[in-house]
Design a protein around this nucleic acid. Structure first.
Lengths: 198, 198
DNA sequence: TTGATTTTTCCGAAATTTCGGACATAAACT
DNA sequence: AGTTTATGTCCGAAATTTCGGAAAAATCAA
């Protein structure tokens, strides 16, 4: 399970306190004190979420939000907002922030929210890998000579049968419903050796 | 995008108010006044989320939570909790509720939370369909004689080439790099007729 | 209908593949 | 060393596939 939390918070005391809360709950805090510092960690395949103060000396939450969304629109950003800043935070959510928390915040609530965000992130990432897997399975058609395509397929089947039988040629031949010799013929044609599957 | 929200709330006034808020935001509220009534809607492939009062005359939120989790552990349940009941709600979250809201609740916050839950649900459902798709693509291997598997593959390639050329056998043969006659041979073997692709 | 064009089938020789059997080799076990 | 077991190669007859040429059938246009 992914559980990194990139923290962007200039107030050192609050930062340490958050780190402690997360550590206690088995999450992996990555504390930073500024957007500049955090920047290089924000990537499209970052295996975690972002927790950022919404108001900081050099940058505000919207910068971070924009940068992050540009980098990966499905990377959750949770904002920490001061007492009177709730409307701003709500606006930020409308613009794509995942959630917000009011600043003197209950550690439990913080962790709950982050876990939700992390689960969301995990789902998105898994979704992506599934998608590329499916693409891989769908594309291999449509090009190459018939004999080339058939050769490839034959090679795949042979390799699969061999690895299923742990490199035992005789048994693989049985499974494939062909005599042992024929399998050897085909293996020779494909330059496959059983040894590679043991 | 999925956007159903199964509402379980015995207080009619509050229920209507919630329905209005959701309607306004383009969600699809399904109002019910009791667990019994809501029960039949809760299924493992329900394309939405559940919003339930945590405390009601006949049942409490934990019943609903348990029933729902039993039915589909990835079906988000958002609980509505009274003013003094926050600790209970937090416990419910630990036990698998998706989130909770304190009862005199801001419609915006309500909708934000539900949207998060819906997004979560959408991801889970899409994930599942991807998974079965992948299974479908992965399983057709590994069984059947080699010649059977090759036949299937050949048939697929042939049909694909033919449909790509709109049923023109000559052109299909060109693409496949074999003489027309050979393609006819193979088509005959597979009982494929070009006419079917025009 | 007639003639031209395309699609499909038929034929048969050449090429390729199959597969049983024999054999050489290597590793594992007694 | 001797036995067993599995790998990998070679041979050659039988079976299957390929593919050019030609004939048959279908389609189309005038």
């Amino acid at each position: 399970m992914i559980q990194k939390v990139l923290i962007i918070e200039d107030d050192a005391a609050l930062r340490t306190s958050i780190v402690q809360s997360l550590d206690l709950e088995g999450l992996e805090p990555i504390p930073t004190s500024s957007f500049i510092q955090a920047r290089r960690t924000i990537r499209s395949n970052f295996k975690g979420v972002i927790l950022s103060d919404i108001k900081m000396p050099d940058h505000d939450g919207f910068d971070i939000l924009q940068f992050t969304r540009n980098c990966d629109p499905d990377l959750p950003v949770v904002l920490l907002t001061g007492f009177s800043d709730v409307p701003t935070a709500m606006r930020a959510v409308k613009e794509g922030a995942y959630d917000y928390l009011e600043k003197p915040c209950d550690p439990d609530k913080l962790v709950d929210t982050l876990r939700r965000a992390l689960k969301h992130r995990a789902l998105v990432l898994q979704n992506r890998t599934y998608r590329v897997e499916l693409d891989k399975k769908n594309t291999p058609d449509s090009d190459g000579t018939l004999s080339e395509q058939m050769d490839q397929q034959e090679r795949r089947i042979l390799e699969q049968a061999l690895s299923a039988t742990n490199g035992n040629v005789g048994e693989a031949a049985n499974r494939l419903g062909i005599p042992r010799n024929t399998l050897y013929d085909r293996m020779t044609r494909h330059r496959i050796v059983a040894k590679a599957f043991r």
